[in-house]
Write a protein that binds this DNA or RNA. Structure first.
Lengths: 164, 164, 164, 164
DNA sequence: TTTT
DNA sequence: TTTT
């Protein structure tokens, strides 16, 4: 079905440090637990109430895995954009179980850090943040230099001949 | 946490007719199964491949439940905007299980029908579609007249004194 | 056209303090200038480049105007969700001119503050921020108590009879 | 500012056929005019009212330009995801003017056709739709084979060693 | 279970 | 200028 959209946008805080694991082929995944919450006033009692939702996020883009590894920690505020995926697995008794995650993979995924709470990192440090632009989007993935990420948002070469 | 975002955007097709159930208090829920899919070309074999993802959607806004009931059918193409929620429940053996759904509830939810495939309905029929504008958004919920849904996108009363 | 979507999502910083003006009927508007930017590496020179985009945002929801007034300042980081609107006006020479803005109005609009930089405010202060939940969304607008904003994200009354 | 989001989502109809122009360097741009509209009931008169908004969309991704060229026509319903950009230009009298457009460029852009209304095209034609997967997203741009678009949404190679 |  |  060329013609569908599957998009999740979350802005919230990490409930714990990212967990990063490696596959045998060298690929990695970073798992985040992100909390979002809503507050409202109860219709009857008038009390203030709050409901927190926890989201499992799996990052497969190596560039964003690096960002998560270096800069995200428990409590970090983060904006992410990914897609919904449900995995089927068997529990110890052999029963089918399903887990739904927000997956950041390939293009169309992004991750934006919203605070400097970077543990031992040097997020706001002068000059040192070579991965700066990578943090904003998977478009510029670290370690994937064969892919043409260096795409100009608006190519200057065109300016001499803009047709509109 | 006043300061979080939990948003899901899906555009896909219904795998079956909506299932609508009533609560003892008269409230209703419409459950949809929405398919989204992606196609890509395999890196190695060069073959075209496709992966379909199925999403459980639960609609609690009565106005949108009415729209689902009247106009959505198996195969309908639909755009929805809601939020992620994971429910905990116990299976027959008493074990904790979790189900993640996309919930359309309150404001911030919307549903847009993208075809006239309305089964026995009269979607494109003249005059009969009194709920027309309601279909586009939960902002104008049917049967919730106590809430001020009749909000002008841009209030004409202001035009005589626009400060900018 | 019941069946369209017009949505803008911005996450960026205010270039200056919000400008708030009143209409003769008492309604207010808050205007924000929000910067977003992208960095990339030039394909030819290999240099790091950055392009900043400035967005005009007009907030008509009184609850969110109050939030902007009290808590947003030059430099504040903010997430907003609104819609695109283009206004036609005449310049001093009588020529038609057009201005495109991101409008936050009615439901479907939200504003999330992403830092505590609240000037004289008491954003993170205990208790004092009665409008806390209001900041997260226009769903709970201050000063519009006639509208049923106190909507429970998930109404407990239903729990005794969940049909699924 | 590594840490911003600039995203526009539109779902609406084309007011006229796409206009496609070429730059001297061979690059192309497709310009679309997309209408979105809202209906509501006037608070005072109770009348049904409608407001249509027109959006200028500029597509720079060659893959999506091809899709627009072949499949989009006046009246086509389309979902697009892009970003806001304001261009400065001088009118004939030398005055600065600004135009705001929704730009689809690079990754993070998508275009989904929502009907088969493809004019002389062969959108639903058997087999002939070589650009099928390209239509769904800029991730698979035609004519940019040097870029590794053939990314598997979920790489099977990993399945033998999933660490979670 | 949808759709192309 | 679209669409319902």
């Amino acid at each position: 079905m060329a013609g569908s959209v599957n998009k999740v946008i979350l802005l919230g805080n990490l409930g714990r440090d990212p967990e990063i694991r490696s596959f045998s082929n060298g690929n990695r995944v970073a798992n985040l637990q992100i909390a979002t919450s809503e507050t409202w006033r109860d219709r009857n009692s008038g009390e203030r109430r709050e409901k927190t939702e926890w989201h499992s996020v799996a990052i497969f883009s190596e560039g964003l895995v690096k960002v998560a590894e270096q800069y995200l920690r428990k409590g970090s505020k983060v904006y992410i954009e990914g897609q919904l995926q449900t995995r089927k697995w068997q529990d110890q008794s052999g029963q089918d179980r399903y887990s739904t995650e927000v997956v950041l993979q390939g293009f169309n995924a992004s991750l934006v850090m919203l605070d400097g709470r970077s543990g031992g990192g040097d997020f706001n440090g002068g000059g040192g943040f070579g991965g700066g632009s990578n943090a904003g989007s998977s478009n510029n993935e670290l370690g994937k230099s064969s892919v043409g990420f260096d795409y100009a948002p608006f190519d200057d070469d065109l300016d001499d001949d803009v047709p509109f």
